[in-house]
Amino acid sequence: MLTRRLMLATGLAALAMPAMAEEPPIFATNRLAIQGYDPVAYFNQGKPVEGSEAHQLMWMGATWRFSSAANREAFERNPQRFAPQYGGYCAYAASQGYVAATDPSAFTVHEGKLYLNYSRRVRGIWEQDIPGHISSADANWPKPLKN
């Protein structure tokens, strides 16, 4: 578990509060998964790329946007391959047993999977032990959605 000092230093103190109600399975801001960024672009361009309203679809209760029809079609064929782990919630938070929002620019592609974090600072903590944090998050998930 995070120490109080680490939580304050990383800006996560407010996020450590348990959710008051069940969270949706996909983190979405204004119903947009990944704040409208293209999940496929993380894999084929190696960076966050804004999606377009012209190339969007509904999946798991959220709207997903893509930068091209080809990326949308790739996602449609295999959404599990491209969707961020832990429903797009902060992967580090999931490893600690809670949910937190994410910043599309705070990402890691590790062993063919997309992980998002609350901020670039939190991504730095995540990167110190990616396999360990994944193991913890996998063991916790999806329990944090129900806090």
Rank of each mutant, 00 (worst) to 15 (best):
D138M: 02
A106S: 12
Y86C: 06
S95V: 02
L57W: 01
G11M: 11
P84E: 04
A93H: 08
A101H: 05
A74I: 06
R121L: 14
I130F: 03
Y89T: 08
S119M: 08
G61V: 09
E53N: 08
Y86Q: 11
R72N: 01
L145T: 03
A139E: 11
Q128T: 12
G124T: 03
Q96V: 01
P24L: 09
A54K: 11
M7F: 11
G88F: 08
E23C: 07
N30V: 09
L6A: 13
A101C: 00
T10M: 15
G124I: 03
A139T: 09
F82W: 15
E73N: 12
A33S: 12
R72K: 15
A100C: 05
I26W: 05
T63H: 04
H133A: 02
A62V: 10
P24F: 08
E22Q: 15
M1Q: 05
A69Y: 01
N147E: 14
P104W: 03
Q96M: 08
T102Y: 00
T3K: 07
L8K: 13
M20S: 12
D129K: 01
N78S: 13
V109H: 03
A9V: 07
R120V: 08
Y115V: 01
A21I: 08
A137Q: 02
Y98H: 10
A83S: 14
R77A: 14
L15V: 03
V49N: 03
V99M: 05
A13P: 00
D103Y: 10
L15R: 10
E76T: 11
F82N: 05
S135D: 09
W59H: 15
I134D: 05
Y118G: 00
S52E: 15
E53W: 04
A94E: 00
L15Q: 12
W59I: 02
E111R: 15
N44M: 08
F107S: 04
F82K: 04
F107D: 01
G88Y: 06
Y98R: 03
K143N: 12
K113F: 00
N117I: 07
T63L: 06
P48G: 06
F66L: 06
M58D: 15
M60C: 06
Q35A: 14
A137R: 02
W126A: 01
R65Y: 02
G88H: 04
E111S: 10
F75V: 05
G61C: 09
Q80R: 11
W64I: 06
N140F: 00
E73Y: 02
S52D: 14
L32K: 15
Y98A: 00
L114Y: 05
A94C: 06
S95Y: 04
P25D: 13
L8V: 06
F107Y: 08
Q96R: 11
A70H: 12
D129S: 11
Q45V: 06
A70K: 14
L8I: 10
Q35R: 14
